[in-house]
Amino acid sequence: MNGRKSFGGGGGGRGKSATGQQGKDGQRRPMFRRRKVCKFCSDKIDDINYKDVRMLMPFVPERAKVLPRRISGTCALHQRKLRTAIMRARQLALIPYTTE
C-alpha cells in the first residue's frame, strides 16, 4: 500500500504541504496536480443515458447535487449531457433530488 498508493495520494499531500509552506515563508513551489480529463471523452462514452444509474452515480455525491465541472474535469459538452441525464433520472426517482 505504501509503495504504490503513496504515488497517487502523495500528489495531493504534496500539494497541500506546498500551500502550507507558501504561507510560511512565501516560497513558491510548483504544485503538482494531475490534469483532469473528461471521463466521457477518454472512455469514449457517447451517449450519457438517464437509465444508466451506475454511470451517473459518481457525479452525484452525498448531497445528491451535480458534481461541478471544476472537480470532475468533465468537458462542457459532456457536462451538459450529464446534467440532462441526471435531471431525467431524478424525475423517475432513480436518483434523489436531495438527501436529508
Binding site: 504515488f7 497517487g8 497541500k16 496536480r33 494531475r34 455525491p61 471544476r70 472537480i71
Partner: peptide
Amino acid sequence: PDDDRDDRFDMGEEL
C-alpha cells in the same frame, strides 16, 4: 492499470 482512475473524483483542494 491501477493508476487509471484513482483520482478522477478526488475533491480538489479548493473545496
